[in-house]
Every structure is written in structure tokens, then in C-alpha cells.
């Protein structure tokens, strides 16, 4: 595979260098561009799949995955945030962002802390009903207005929800779930299809 890629890359490189040297306009013909994208695609899809968390380790990694999946779970239509790679995405960015290390790393500890206070267990060891009870509290801003003790949890969950949505809806399955069609080479743009009332 890598040899094959290498030779294709050479072809492509030769093609683009030839263009730069000979042609007035520095552009790649449509077919060559399509070919280039195909090469990139193949390269990306052969990347190693095993992921070692960079910031969230041990229990925190499991807790992060559980929360991502709770936010955008698998359903009848498609898989959820974990299959979509949201935890890996969040871990990578957090490992590079001290502010998120505090907000997300601290948020996970806060969540385990409140679960131990109320249910004498860490979040992942709580029953499904207990997990739902606590998530229902931190998933809505109005709860923090009623009970100020929830303020950090609500802020943490809002950030995690945004980042989980990032991870899910920028994944292959997330994009398919939304029904986005595009990112293609079209010869003609057809415009708006006939829609009654539009």
C-alpha cells in the first residue's frame, strides 16, 4: 500500500511541478485534483486506529466516553459520539489547551465528587437512574439558578456538549446523519429543487 501511494504521489508531484514550470497558470486540471483528493483519502483511511489518550487517562477517559455517549447516543439511525470519535477529538484538543484542561478535567472530578456525596459512588459506578438524575440537573441552566451548587457542573456540561457535537457532527456518521450532500465535483450546479411553497 505505502509503495503504491508513494508512486502515485510521485506521479502527482511530477504533474504539479511540470505545471508550475511550463504552464502560465498555476493550477491543476480537474482530473488531477480529483486524483489528489483520492490519494489524500487513502492516506487518511490507513492511519492507525488504536488511540492512546493524551490527557484523560484511566477513570477519566472512561467517564469522558460515557458522558459523550450520553450526550449524543447511538440510536436507530446510527452510532453515537463514541463510534464517531468524539472522545479522541476532545482528548487531543484538551491536551493542548490548559483552559479546557481545567474546565473539563476539573469538571469530571466535580461530577465524580457530587456523585460520591449523593450516591456514594463515582458516576460510572452509579445506577442508570442515578446517572440520569445527576445529568438532568447539570444539563439545564435553570437548575443552577435554583441550586447554585450546580453552577460549575452546568458550565462544564455545556462545554462538553458543544465539543461532543463538534466531534459527532464532523465525523463520517454524523455528517451522514445530518443528510449533508456535497463536497463533490459537479459540472453544473442545479440550484434549488422544486419545493412546494418555497
Amino acid at each position: 500500500m505505502s509503495e503504491d501511494l508513494l508512486s502515485r504521489r510521485k506521479v502527482l508531484k511530477g504533474l504539479s511541478m511540470g505545471l508550475a514550470a511550463d504552464v502560465v497558470l498555476r493550477s491543476i486540471p480537474l482530473e488531477a485534483a480529483a486524483y489528489a483528493h483520492e490519494v489524500i483519502d487513502t492516506e487518511k483511511s490507513t492511519q492507525a486506529t488504536g488511540y492512546l489518550p493524551k490527557f484523560f487517562t484511566g477513570n477519566q477517559w472512561n467517564l469522558l466516553k460515557a458522558l459523550c455517549e450520553a450526550i449524543l447516543p447511538a440510536d436507530a439511525d446510527c452510532g453515537g459520539a463514541v463510534v464517531a470519535g468524539a472522545p479522541e477529538f476532545i482528548d487531543l484538543l484538551t491536551s493542548e489547551n490548559p483552559e479546557w484542561q481545567r474546565k473539563l478535567g476539573g469538571g469530571l472530578l466535580w461530577l465524580d465528587g457530587i456523585c460520591k456525596d449523593r450516591f456514594d459512588n463515582s458516576f460510572t459506578d452509579c445506577t442508570a437512574a442515578q446517572q440520569k438524575e445527576i445529568l438532568d440537573l447539570i444539563a439545564f441552566r435553570k437548575n443552577a439558578e435554583i441550586d447554585p451548587i450546580l453552577v460549575p457542573g452546568v458550565a462544564f456540561f455545556a462545554l462538553l456538549r458543544n465539543l461532543t457535537a463538534d466531534g459527532f457532527f464532523t465525523s463520517k456518521i454524523g455528517i451522514a446523519y445530518l443528510g449533508y450532500q456535497g463536497n463533490e465535483f459537479l459540472l453544473e450546479f442545479p440550484g434549488c429543487p422544486p419545493v412546494p411553497g418555497l
Binding site: A158, N162, D166
Partner: peptide, 29 residues
């Protein structure tokens, strides 16, 4: 309209709908 989805595109709906789970997923869609 429906452009290629990107990071931060769903901040608005997450903030408005809040919550989590299948209902949130469907609302985003």
C-alpha cells in the same frame, strides 16, 4: 443552508435546546 458541517456549528442549538440524548441529536438534525 446546509453547508458542510464544521466545529462550533451546533453551539447555538445546544445552548437553546440544552439537555442531552436522542432528543438533542434529533434537534441538531
Amino acid at each position: 443552508g446546509k453547508h458542510m458541517p464544521g466545529v462550533s456549528n451546533f453551539d447555538g442549538v445546544c445552548a437553546e435546546h440544552e439537555g442531552y440524548g436522542v432528543a438533542l441529536k434529533q434537534k441538531c438534525r
